[in-house]
Design a protein around this nucleic acid. Structure first.
Lengths: 122, 122
DNA sequence: GGAAGTGGTTACCTATAGGAAACCACCTTG
DNA sequence: CAAGGTGGTTTCCTATAGGTAACCACTTCC
């Protein structure tokens, strides 16, 4: 019996793999990270605000993605009692726990872009 | 001139949004986080090892995703001079900078799963 | 009354992500 | 020489993600 080059079959590792799947399934698609990232910066935003801020998104996708995020308790939707009715989208307390993740995402992206620039100038 | 409820038009913010896009474009698709996550655990792995470890992936996707990652300098591909030819995939030094990001991803996923369990048991 | 701004939904279309399976080459073992 | 293990590529197919545009309702402004 040869020893297989298996990684690490401990439950810790299985949990980790499962956890990555879970996170990705909640934040799947092209826009959710952007929307959450924007809401971290903006605190409370209306639909049209988000449409402007999230570069390139259309009404359909924004609407759908917000529903997804609301379903997963990450975003709250509050209809305000104003003259032209307005709706406020904001991160829930739980949604705010995504901050460190989004920060890492942004941080890595900055470094990545810099590394491309550096490699070009050699 | 009404003040628009614009988030934060500073360059810091624009960079951040751009950075999130960058990261997501490099790690797009269903499998890249899994593959990188597995390589973090496993150090050096062969094609068949990855095929076994990354649950559910097929040869085509694994092959394609590894090429993508190699192109972006995140993964190295080394053909070993062994009797039945073997290939070692490993994270590059730059690929290892993804560790904190993957860790956050996994950490959040664990918390998320727990929050689902908790909300059920109330 | 019509334009313009709020916040969407719906229908339609297409590009592509991703899966299954066949196939290829090379080497070793029986 | 056939089987089985390495490491893939190619073809073919489909599900779905995502884009465009039309449309809806309500309100205020002119």
């Amino acid at each position: 019996m040869k020893k297989k080059a298996v990684v690490n079959d401990t439950s810790v590792c299985q949990v980790r793999i499962q956890a990555i799947s879970d996170t990705m399934s909640v934040l799947s698609g092209k826009w959710k990270f952007h929307i959450v990232g924007t809401l971290i910066e903006g605190n409370k935003l209306g639909f049209m605000d988000l449409l402007r801020e999230v570069n390139g998104i259309g009404t359909k996708m924004l609407s759908k993605e917000l529903q997804d995020l609301e379903m997963n308790q990450l975003v709250s939707r509050t209809v305000m009692n104003t003259k032209p009715i307005t709706v406020e989208y904001a991160l829930t307390e739980y949604g705010k726990t995504l901050s460190p993740l989004i920060d890492e995402l942004a941080k890595w992206g900055v470094g990545y872009r810099q590394s491309i620039i550096d490699s070009k100038s050699i």
